[in-house]
């Protein structure tokens, strides 16, 4: 299969002769890995796929791990179907399609893709975990994946990055992003479109059937159009804003004679960088941790603390 490289940062690479996966034609099961973050609807995507496979008479196994999912953790669901399925989990390097509802989650599971033929379809939506916003270092960047579609392009047979969440929001329901990705997934399989729509209509809340079916078409058209080289909408991958290295550092001045050791600043410091020294006077024990938030300065009942910003020029 020849590979056509694209320069568009959403359609990263397409195969000149894209495969249609047909469980009738292979002895091995077909493997679809669906990944995302808790609350995005990963399990719903896999339930829809599993139900279609079951309706069409294939053996299907669907495996996920619950527990931490509600707590903003990583969610993944393995779906395997065919005439005979043994393991419910997909062996690493054997996933035929990887559907990611979140960009960094797509990157995390990439090693599961079948080298040479595995298809990658990802929503460019970013869900930034609190952990990524922990650094207190001046000029610290968000600790989120820096890899862009450009980095992915060379390494995957066929890959698409679409802003499904944005497209679904414009269609009227942000929650339908996962159905849009089901539409994208449907282009890789031989299952009839009516079957997909029947199951989706059956699974979604009655009031949202129309919007879900509409975004399903959108997802399908998006991939089909991209493969044909037609211009597609709703794609762009927005790079993370690079840090603007700033010029300020803080020093804390504590007037020992005015401090009565009331401990308020020590207890309320969000970074726990103040202590009471042996003379019961507040002291900045770990200056590198101080973020210059002013809390100690403002809370001190005796005006004993003042925060002095030092500009870059002064440092230099």
């Amino acid at each position: 299969m020849a590979k056509v490289k694209k320069t568009d940062n959403s359609v990263m690479a397409v195969l000149a002769d894209p495969p249609k996966l047909d469980p009738k034609e292979t002895k091995e099961p077909i493997n679809v890995l669906i990944v995302g973050v808790g609350g995005q609807g990963v399990i719903m995507v896999s339930k829809v796929l599993a139900l279609i496979c079951q309706n069409l008479g294939y053996e299907v196994k669907q495996s996920e791990v619950h527990g931490m999912a509600k707590r903003g953790g990583v969610v993944f669901s393995h779906v395997r179907f065919g005439s005979n399925v043994w393991s419910p989990t997909i062996p690493m390097g054997k996933a035929d399609v990887l559907i990611a509802l979140e960009w960094a989650e797509g990157l995390r599971w990439m090693s599961y893709l079948r080298p040479g033929t595995g298809i990658f379809i990802a929503d460019t939506k970013r869900i930034v975990p609190p952990f990524a916003c922990r650094s207190r270092i001046l000029g610290a960047d968000i600790g989120y994946s820096k890899d862009t579609p450009d980095d992915v392009r060379e390494k995957v047979a066929e890959a698409f990055a679409l802003d499904a969440t944005e497209m679904a929001t414009r269609a009227g329901n942000e929650r339908a992003a996962n159905t849009l990705l089901l539409g994208a997934l449907s282009t890789t399989l031989t299952f009839p479109t009516e079957e997909w729509k029947k199951v989706i209509a059956q699974m979604v809340p009655p009031k949202t059937v129309d919007v879900n079916l509409a975004v399903f078409d959108q997802g399908q058209n998006w991939i089909d159009g991209s493969r044909k080289g037609e211009p597609v909408e709703g794609a762009a991958f927005v790079p993370l804003v690079q840090p603007e290295l700033n010029s300020v550092r803080n020093t804390l001045e504590i007037t020992a004679e005015w401090c009565k050791g009331c401990d308020i600043c020590v207890k309320m410091c969000p970074e726990r960088c103040l202590v009471l020294n042996k003379d019961q006077v507040a002291e900045l024990a770990e200056p590198e941790k101080c973020t210059g938030c002013h809390i100690c300065e403002w809370l001190c009942p005796d005006f004993a603390i003042s925060l002095n910003p030092i500009t870059q020029e002064a440092v230099a």
Binding site: V37, G73, S111
Partner: peptide, 9 residues
């Protein structure tokens, strides 16, 4: 498949 540095989540 290809490997990328995983995001800590």
């Amino acid at each position: 498949g290809p490997q990328f540095e995983p995001l800590i989540r």
